[in-house]
Every structure is written in C-alpha cells, then in structure tokens.
Design a protein around this nucleic acid. Structure first.
Lengths: 356, 356
DNA sequence: TTGAAAGCGATACCAC
DNA sequence: GTGGTATCGCTTTCAA
C-alpha cells in the first residue's frame, strides 16, 4: 500500500528533501546537483537545510541513469603491489577524487591477456574514462580484440588513456625516460665520471631504449661518447644484472661506473660483482633506474643512485586527459635523479680514488 | 521524435535484445540477469544469441536503480603505495572480482581524518560493502562522527569490515600477529638461539603487543623466558630502531639475537649497530616482522629474517565477510616465517660462534 | 512460463 | 525562476 522505496532502509530521496523544503523536486534537484545555478537564494537555502536535515545523499545510480553516464573512471593495472602500478594508482585516485569521480580499480593480476575480459566487463558500468597502466605494449599479444574493445569503449563511453607503453590509436602518457636518462648522464658527468658502461634491459621496450638514448645525448652534451661495445644487452631483472655483470667481468672491461636501465639489474649486478670480490663503489660505481620507494629512513635502498619517474603525476595526468580532452597537454614533471653512495663524487681528481 | 536513448552512442539496450530475439523484455531480462531461471530453453538460446549479436552489455546503473543496490565494494586505504595497503587491496580486488563485484578504491592519502569525509561521499554510491584498511585504530581520533557514518552506512547499505585494528561495534579482520610472533620464536629456537632481546614498536598498538605476546608464548614452549628488561620499547620506525639500538648498546647488553616487531625497526637497528662496529649477524643476529616484498631475486631484503602476514588473504576475507555474513569465519592462513642470513643456524653448538 | 505495465530516483525539457 | 511531467534502462509483480 505505502509507496515502496528501493532505497535501503528508508534512505531519504530527493522527493523527501523537496517536500521538507516546500519546493518542487525540480528545484531541489537544481540546488543539490544541477549545474546552471538559477535558483532564488531563499529557496536554495531552504533546500540545503532540508537536505542536511533529512540526511540526503544523491543516489548515484539514479543520477547516472538520468544523466546517461556514471561519474567513474576505471583503472586497470597489472599488480597493485608493484610500486610502478601503485604509484600510478595513487596519482589517478587523487585526481579522480579531486574531480568528484569514483575510481574503480581492476587488476589483471599479471595475466595481461585478461585485459580484454576486464575491459569487456567494465563496459557494464559505463564509466566515463578508462586508464590502462602497463609496463609494455601487450596489445599485440592480447590480440586486436583488446583494441576492438578499447575502440568500442571510446565510441560508446568515454576516452581511453594508456599509461606506459603506447599502442597506436589510443592516447598514451609516456614516462619521461629520455629526459631521465639525460639527467642521469648530466649528474654523473657532474660527479666527475667519464668512463661509462650501460647494462640495457631490453632493446625492444621503448622505456629502456629511451633511457639509453637520453643517456647518450646527455653524455654527448659533456663531450663524452658511449661506444656500442660499452652497452651490454640483457634482461630487465636482477637475473639480467647478474648475466650482464658476468659478461662484463669476462670482457675484463673496466668502467668508472655501470649504468643500469633498471634498479633490479643494478641489484643483480652488484651481487655478482661483489661475489667476484669487487668493491662497490670502490672498484666500480653503479647506478640504476626506476627508484621504487619513497626512501624510508634507514633503508639501504637509498644507497643506490637511481632515477625516479613521476609516476603519480602520470596517473593524474592520465585521468585528466581521459576526462577532459582539453587538459591532455599538461606537462609532466622531470624525473628526479637520486644520488646515493653507489656513485660517490670523483671530483676533485686529486682526492683518493679506488678506495672506499 | 525518435525515442531518445541515454545510452551513449547507440549502445544496445535490453529492449533491443528482446526485439531481436522476438521475446518480451521481461524474458530477456530473466535470461540475461535474473536469478531464478525459469525460461524455456528455446527462448533462452534465442536471447543469448541476440544479446551476443547486438553486443549487449547490462547497464549497471539502471540495474542498480531497479534492484536498489549497486554491486560494488568500497575499499578505503591509507596510501596505496604502502605494501601493507597494496597487498590488502590486491586480495580485496581479487575477491570482489571473483564475486562479480566492482571495487572502488579510496585513499585517505595518509590523512586519516579524511576517512569520515570519504565514507560520507561513498554513500552516494550505495555500495554493498565497505572495507576500511588501517594500521591503527583512528576512530577515536577521527571522532565518533566516523563511527556514526559507519553505523549509518551499515543501516542503510551494506556491512562494514575493518582490516587491521578493530574498533568496537564494527567487524574486524585482524592480522594473526600472535601466531606470527609465536612462529618466529619457534623458528629461532630451532636455529639454536636461546638469548633474546626484543625491540618493541609501540605498546599501544595491538599488533605490536600481539607479536610480543606470541613471541613470549613461543619461547616458553621451548622453556625460555623473556624478562621485561630484555624488551626495549621504542617507536615502529627505522628511527625507533636506531633509538632502541642506542639504548641496547648503552646497556652493554648482549643477546644472541634482537627481535624487532617491525622490519623498519630492524633496519634502523642494523644501521646503528653496524655504525658501532658490530658485525651482524656475527656479533648479534637480528630479525624483523612484516616482510614487504615478494622477494625479487637479488634484493638484499631477503637477507633479513622476518615474518610475512597474509595480508592478501585478509583483504579477501574482509570482502567475503562484508558481502556474505555466512563466510565471515574463514580462517586466515598462518603467517610465514622467512629465515634469512641475518639469523644463521647456530646448531650444532660446536660450530664456531661469533664469527661471520 | 511469458508478457504487460508499474515503478526505481533523478534529470531536463517545456510551459507558466 | 519554478514546477509539472516525460523519460532513462531494467526489474518485478501480477495476470493471462
């Protein structure tokens, strides 16, 4: 008999507010959610008071249905426990919340072929934007069906932005790896290093290449060249670092500093080099790339010289770009070079070298 | 003139599927979303085919409005970049997705007083469950207004579950810290240690106390007692470790092993002890608690003996419990003791001691 | 079993 | 400015 509400346990509806304020539902709606503010102050105050009084909260689903879109942005990550994704998520979350959007988090849990299914599933929600964070371009492997999904999504819902490796028709926010490599080169030159070796993680990953390219350009600014023979190609992991270090030792090379395109490579290399009795940085200095932590006091990780990409900002920029096409050209902050004990100052030259 | 659809760019609606299948919308609904399956097979097949053909996806907002609730669970974390929260989020996400739920991620960004506002805002969405992850009970500080919000939420929407420190009338999933402490004691006894000192992070944090209590109980099982004078009270951080180690050195204590209730404390202590010329584990072994990483090869962090709590599972259990009251008694897996180089085997006793 | 029709809560067009 | 009122897409009685 009594009107049935779908709101759980008598949560007040807009109509309740309107009644309490003695205005029409339209007016209440305009005050509480509408954009074009064209309500007399007197009414406005009454509505606000009534809403507060009855404890009204907008029913997002109803609003979404009436408006035709849901104020949410979906973020697909690989594994949120990975700092790369966590930092992106952090920034994305902050920006979404700043804009009054809800953030839906989805995870492929490492299985990137799941991206397609996730996106598929996502579409039910009609979020306004979709941000895909990825370390490498898996679109090809995941099949063009993912691309179809993305394009479908863009047609029917909002925009898609990829953070990390770009993949053609979709907008991407790339990490400033070139700049980071260049900055690292500059910093090392500044410290007095002139003789470099690079452990490159993967020739086919754009980020890795960019870091190397940037590094080379940075060196050339200081008039230093990096011959190809000084670049050890390996894999972007600690195991890769061990392998590259092994090759390096076999070559009887001696550089002043080894620059790795990933921190993990550096850690592996350090392990291998120390295992061979080398002192670091005494016998050879070392630097990484991709600093993970926000340096809690007392953690040895601060010791490694490395570069920190502005991942939080990338997440935020991705959300902005996805939600607001006009904002797509926000510049990213420059990567931050962290100088640790692994690359001590070599200047002035008369100071003792090769000594811890 | 033509019927206006609020669906973006002609996304098919249920009515389109029904038409294509030549059945009523009710039938289509029953096949595609309904629970009680009471549709003739012939129709069922036709509907499914039609849905596939036109590329139908349920409009969640519409469904939510009709049903009265949104299939989402909200997760409020402190800072997603923190492994504690990231691992909980990971588990929560997996469980939510397994159940077909959407996960909304919110962050207080370290400012726990924001919890209240977040929960307030959250209610717009009418999610079915709310999971709050927290390292300590901040309800008191955030004022009882948070508690009011939570209770309000429970009344009108779903259930609230807290992961971490409990706070009265709300269900909580606590980390098995007591068991972890006990297990660590057992493992150290097994390695031949008999003389212990504990650096306790904070007397008022339940987790810290539980670890200590569990540790004591574990020791007593081996007939070993831990006098109060062997417990150094400090703060749960690297700085706290430095402070405790300083006290320890001043006391001229000598234990076989220092057990810290947080990894950070251990790292700080290590730094301080080494700074005083002590060899670790040569002069004193050390263990922590709360292992962070999933041990990437080559990372020194594996070296520290520590205990890893089942945070992923806690996140998953929290979601289950919030969504499904019946499932609230799922047991958590036991914490995992990781033995590293910081606590070498002391048995057999005839082996050389105090020597690296 | 199936279908017609009445909502669900909010928005927005359209007169007044 | 303000207030009816017709949707929005889907679920769910209620008859047939």
């Amino acid at each position: 008999m009594t009107p049935v509400s779908n709101e759980p346990n008598g949560t007040p509806r807009l109509a309740d507010v309107a009644r309490a304020a003695g205005v029409s539902q339209s007016t209440a709606s305009r005050v509480l959610n509408g954009s074009a503010r064209q309500v007399a102050d007197e009414y406005r105050v009454r509505v606000l008071a009534a809403a507060e009084q009855v404890g009204y909260t907008t029913n997002l689903a109803a609003q979404a249905m009436a408006r035709g879109h849901y104020p949410a942005v979906a973020l697909v990550v690989g594994d949120i426990r990975d700092q790369f994704f966590a930092r992106i998520a952090f920034g994305a979350m902050r920006e979404a919340s700043r804009r009054g959007y809800i953030l839906n988090l989805l995870s492929t849990e490492g299985d990137e072929s799941r991206e397609r299914d996730l996106v598929q599933d996502l579409r039910r929600q009609r979020p306004e934007a979709l941000v895909l964070a990825r370390k490498r371009d898996t679109t090809a492997r995941a099949g063009s069906r993912l691309m179809e999904q993305l394009i479908g999504f863009q047609r029917e819902s909002g925009r898609v932005v990829i953070v990390g490796e770009p993949s053609e028709p979709v907008l991407a926010v790339r990490p400033p790896d070139f700049d980071g490599g260049k900055a690292l080169a500059g910093a090392l030159l500044e410290l007095g290093y002139r003789d470099f070796v690079v452990f490159l993680g993967d020739n086919s990953i754009p980020s890795e290449r960019d870091r190397l390219d940037g590094f080379r350009v940075g060196l050339s600014t200081g008039g230093v060249a990096l011959p190809d023979s000084h670049v050890y190609l390996t894999s972007p992991s600690a195991a890769g670092g061990i392998a590259a270090a092994t090759d390096y030792l076999a070559d009887r090379s001696k550089a002043e500093v080894i620059v790795c395109t990933e921190d993990d490579i550096a850690w592996g290399a350090i392990q291998r080099l120390r295992g061979s009795g080398l002192e670091i940085p005494g016998d050879v200095a070392i630097a990484g790339y991709g600093r993970r932590r926000s340096s809690p006091l007392g953690d040895d990780a601060d010791w490694l010289t490395t570069v920190r990409s502005p991942l939080e900002e990338m997440g935020a920029v991705a959300v902005s770009a996805a939600l607001d096409p006009l904002a797509s050209d926000v510049p990213l902050p420059a990567p931050e070079v962290h100088l640790g004990g692994s690359t001590p100052d070599r200047t002035p030259p008369r100071a003792s070298r090769r000594k811890r």
